[in-house]
Design a binder for these strands. Structure first.
Lengths: 332, 332
DNA sequence: TGGAGCGTTTAAATCGTTTAAATGGCGGCG
DNA sequence: CGCCGCCATTTAAACGATTTAAACGCTCCA
């Protein structure tokens, strides 16, 4: 590996000049600039990132904290985040927390130790003191659905309400009167928002019966919750807080020989790639993941490059995608 | 952030002693050791990783290069790799290459710049000179299905043949005589191995007709390949080189009103989580992903901690999981 | 011709570690 | 009693970059 010193020698200047040219941090005579550039290219020089972070006090790595990389919702966001970051010359350190507060804390500690200038959190399991310590250390942070912006803290708000409302209205328009909702774990704010939105949307129409069950965002969870829902009262329409649970619900219906959408309509949330490949294809609320990934990075990048600027709130719309798991309720 | 200097002051020793205690790189009087440990704990000291890598010449980050994090096969391996790495005190930098040689080259450059002690490649799109330069720079590398071991290079061999053979035998035993195979992109060695294994297994039984189509590991690819296969000759059994393509094939069959498994049997490969949730559930060859992730890391770790030791070859078995997409061929 | 003034370049300090070499104290042995 | 050798510890020199402050070399004007 070539060092800045070798480049300096080759270009016949001091190392400071090389640094100035490469970082554009000071005016340099065009002629010297050319020589330096040439020497650097010739030697295939790339600044040693460790040395750089040591003196700067920040690394060129940003953190991306996800609750479960195994859930197909996250890899796609990760991918587009990572691509945006790479274009800005930043590496992305992906950390998986398994929806666990303790592991999240640990992940943050490790990110701080890496001296990341910022991190994005696609999970809501972040303890308050962790958030505060992060802000205190001057680390920029972008949260998903946390709802609060502050110095060094931006927020991406997914407009769940819009999509959920559309989903509920869709079911109501089809004539459904008994609706079930399978929610996510209640310690997550995003799960709370979705449930809230469902309840509000369902309340607009009089004479609609509603039941809600909190679950865990997994296929198995969706399966059992659907089962409970069907036992408790014979729902004709079910909205799940994510596609995985929606798919679980479909299997529950299948196992009970209940036809979807003939006897039971099901709507998911997220529009993961697989949603369009279930049999029948799952009606769901789409979250534009590529856009979210890009936006999350942009928000973080803004925070990093100008630490003085206040945190912002960004909005992302969600939209209903009608496929084949919804139909009018059976007439009894 | 506390520095080693502050710890030294608090413990009343020199910074070198602190370093020795913390790294166990030299004998230290138990009494001093205790004082240092206490001081470090008291201050919540964690060594600055940038400074450390600067002087060591290696970072505490290992690379994990995957072709497509969006393909559910990889996140799970990633997860278990990452967990093993974390237990060994190493961070994992995940890089996505989109099956692109150029992007792989770029990813490697960035890893080298980060001074990783080693990297694992779950993709076969690695140019030879890249591999060589990696080895030359003293970076340990673990490849999946590359088949070559050398100094600083280990290899994980997935025993495709075993699983594929079981899949083909399963179809033959059911009485199928016309078999199709949907392969992966031929520039990947793992795709080649699977195709090879299929052809060999099918050749053992006389009177069996066989057709092969190379595709691209995507759902869409599987869909079109299945379509072609059915046009070319009326296959009654199809083996796909991965589950995504198997699922694509199922949809193709569905759209053509061909019942699975009544008229067409389909077998996938990988056993991604979704394989058990398709309708009907996909018969597939299981690759133990958690185990693979762990093993890949262990192999890498061995390479890193003792650079002198020769590269090793590790084997992982694959096994057929019979679910619901296979049945005897229709009697004509 | 000498100096002011300006823009460019340089020397040197710094970041927080690791580690080779130097130091100092102490017991054992001649 | 003095010397040697051994241990535990310290001193100090790296590692490769950024950046402040100082030096330098020009041009231009008096």
């Amino acid at each position: 590996m070539a060092t800045i010193r070798e480049v300096a020698v080759k270009a016949g200047v001091s190392i400071a000049t090389v640094s100035y040219v490469l970082n554009g941090s000071r005016r340099v005579r065009p002629q010297t600039e050319q020589r330096v550039l040439w020497a650097a290219r010739e030697l295939g020089y790339a600044p040693n990132s460790a040395a750089r972070s040591l003196v700067i006090g920040r690394s060129s790595i940003v953190g991306l904290v996800v609750p479960d990389i195994g859930n197909p919702f996250f890899p796609e966001i990760t991918k587009s985040f990572q691509e945006s970051a790479a274009m800005a010359g930043l590496e992305t350190m992906v950390m998986n927390t398994n929806y666990d507060v303790e592991r999240t804390r640990n992940a943050v500690d490790r990110l701080v130790n890496l001296q990341v200038p910022g991190a994005a959190f696609l999970t809501s399991q972040v303890a308050r003191e962790v958030r505060e310590s992060l802000a205190g250390k001057g680390v920029g942070a972008v949260y998903l659905d946390h709802g609060v912006t502050a110095a060094r803290i931006s927020n991406i708000a997914l407009d769940y309400a819009h999509g959920i409302r559309a989903a509920v209205n869709h079911l109501l328009e089809l004539g459904h009167k008994r609706l079930g909702f399978i929610g996510g774990p209640m310690h997550g704010t995003s799960a709370q928002h979705r449930k809230q939105a469902f309840l509000e949307a369902a309340a607009t129409e009089p004479g609609v019966e509603v039941r809600v069950i909190d679950s865990d965002f997994s296929i198995q969870g969706g399966y059992f919750s659907c089962s409970k829902l069907l036992n408790v009262f014979s729902a004709t329409g079910i909205v799940a807080a994510n596609d995985l649970m929606g798919i679980g619900a479909m299997h529950c219906a299948y196992d009970r020989q209940i036809s979807v959408p003939g006897q039971l309509s099901i709507i998911g949330f997220d529009d993961i790639t697989f949603a369009q490949f279930t049999q029948p294809a799952l009606t769901t609320v789409s979250v534009p993941r590529v856009e979210v990934g890009r936006l999350v990075f942009q928000a973080l990048h803004a925070l990093i490059s100008d630490p003085a600027q206040a945190g912002k709130e960004y909005d992302v719309k969600t939209t209903l995608i009608v496929r084949q798991t919804t139909a009018p309720p059976p007439k009894t």
